[in-house]
Design a protein around this nucleic acid. Structure first.
Length: 294
DNA sequence: CAAGAATCCTGCCAGC
DNA sequence: TGCTGGCAGGATTCTT
């Protein structure tokens, strides 16, 4: 379940191992992996072959590789990727055995290591977009993430207040703030001592500040751990990501004592997924006053 | 128009 | 043992 720190680790791996190389061949073995490429898998392959990868960029949980066409000086197209739930981008020797869920394979003109897109649950995928060197058009709606220097804390607070929703929903809304998934949302709420079901409309400026600081702390910690492993040949999301190494305070700890107050962590179902929180540290929001009956 | 629910997918595991 | 149902969840699509 890659969230921002995991995707950033992958981006760094791509930057190190793939940028500067020219694509020789592309093999799509599972059409679902390129379903977002409207022109189909044959076009996907044709557009990529001969292009040189000239960067590795990220917005939220999306990655893209700007592509410089043969004879061109600057990139115009980009190879966009989303890992979904279980996607991996692996840098493998050409003779490495094919993975069970290998969907796309990229080989390079230097004959060196391949790039492989492997995805068990097929929620992820890749596509080539035009005029995408700056920001692929299809992800223009994705907000900046909290580690982006241009993320606007004040605008985020205003957007929360303007919204009539629950705090955790807002954290997971990639058009408000990107990169946060279910795990880091729960961790950041726990650190902030805020309940995920509290209203966004009444959040105070100090609470927003605390929340953003918590999100940043959780992600920075995970990145510090995950970032240490990308030195290997693997650009591996599931195997090397931050939250598998760091200790979690809330997520997945139902019944275990809160690390602050020892109250058992509770799990509730929310938005078709699990939410973990401390019922003592993170007080349930007051229910709206019932309408006075006549 | 905005908020929230439904949907896609496969592996795993508890329960019978 | 082998089946079944539930669970895991990111982002798009659909509904209200």
């Amino acid at each position: 379940m890659p969230e921002l720190p995991e995707v950033e680790v992958v981006r760094r791996g791509l930057d190190r191992w793939i940028v500067g190389r020219t694509i020789a061949r592309v093999e799509v073995t599972h059409p679902r992996a390129v379903r977002r490429h409207a022109a189909g898998s044959a076009d996907f392959t044709a557009v990529l072959v001969g292009s040189r990868v000239s960067g590795a960029l990220r917005r939220g949980k999306y990655l893209w590789l700007p592509l410089t066409a043969p004879g061109a000086d600057t990139p115009s197209d980009a190879l966009l990727a989303h890992l979904g739930m279980s996607g991996q981008l692996l840098v493998q020797e050409p003779d490495a055995p094919r993975e069970k869920h290998l969907h796309i394979r990229f080989t390079f003109t230097d004959g060196g290591r391949e790039l492989r897109f492997v995805d068990q649950r097929t929620f992820g995928g890749m596509a080539v977009e035009h005029n995408a060197a700056q920001l692929p058009p299809s992800i223009a709606h994705i907000a900046r993430d909290v580690l982006d220097p241009r993320f606007d804390d004040t605008a985020f607070h205003t957007a929360l207040r303007r919204r009539d929703s629950e705090l955790k929903r807002a954290l997971l809304d990639q058009s408000l703030v990107s990169g946060i998934g279910n795990i880091y949302a729960d961790e950041a709420l726990w650190r902030s001592k805020l309940h995920g079901a509290r209203s966004t409309a009444t959040i105070t400026r100090p609470q927003t500040a605390l929340l953003l600081a918590s999100v940043r702390a959780v992600m920075t910690d995970a990145l510090a751990v995950g970032g240490t492993s990308f030195d290997s040949l693997y650009v591996n999301v599931n195997g090397e990501s931050g939250y598998f190494s760091r200790s979690l305070d809330a997520y997945g700890r139902e019944g275990e004592p809160c690390n602050r107050c020892a109250t058992p962590i509770r799990r509730i179902s929310f938005m078709n997924r699990s939410s973990y929180f401390c019922p003592n540290c993170q007080r349930s929001p007051r229910r709206p006053r019932p309408a006075v009956s006549v």
